[in-house]
């Protein structure tokens, strides 16, 4: 990407945080499918690490919270707690259909629904599971500053592209 192209996207908060996205991965009750695709995005073939992305062990070091799976009642509070611990500005990426809306599990007696019900979401990446390339592109959008902190969410307006 050319420098000129990048500055076009740069917003004010982007200029404040000019650094690599560090990622905290949170499984909110998913089936593992999105998790293995997310880990596959970190491994040599797709290599998100070329964006400087790094998987960190503590939410206090993270810029991006990657959430996979429908939010179950048992983890809802942990999710809120972890989101609150992250420093500002923070981005939330909901990976997979379940994290976007509850997907196939909506209606279950322990399933709350999408991540949006608990915390604001910056980007939704639907798919069951999304291809690692798609996950790469979502993280790249954050890296390039194409997306502002306050989230668009998975609303109906986004439905048609």
């Amino acid at each position: 990407m050319a420098d000129g192209q990048r500055s076009e996207h740069e917003s004010f908060d982007r200029r404040l945080v000019r650094k690599s996205p560090w990622i905290f991965h949170f499984n909110s009750g998913g089936c593992n499918g999105c998790d293995i695709e997310f880990v596959a995005a970190l491994t040599p073939l797709y290599d998100v690490e070329r964006l400087g992305a790094k998987l960190v062990a503590s939410p206090k070091h993270a810029d991006v919270l990657v959430v996979t799976g429908p939010v179950t009642l048992q983890v809802a509070k942990s999710l809120k707690l972890i989101y609150d611990q992250m420093p500002e500005p923070k981005y939330v990426v909901a990976i997979g259909t379940c994290a976007c809306s509850g997907g196939i599990f909506s209606g279950g007696y322990t399933v709350l629904g999408g991540v949006e019900k608990v915390i604001p979401v910056t980007i939704c990446v639907p798919g069951c599971p999304p291809n690692p390339k798609e996950i790469f592109r979502a993280l790249e959008a954050i890296y390039k500053g194409e997306i502002k902190v306050a989230g668009g969410g998975c609303g109906e307006e986004q439905n048609r592209g």
Binding site: N27, G29, G30, C31, N32, G33, C34, D35, I36, G69, P70, T72, Q74, I104, F105, G107, G108, Y109, T110, V111, C128, P129
Partner: peptide, 26 residues
């Protein structure tokens, strides 16, 4: 990670359940 799949399965048809049970584990 308890999602109550056995209960959801009772409320859907056999064909829908085929895709539901697949998503127990990725």
């Amino acid at each position: 990670v308890h999602r109550g799949i056995e209960k959801i399965a009772e409320g859907r048809t056999f064909l829908q359940d085929l895709f539901l049970v697949e998503r127990i584990c990725g």
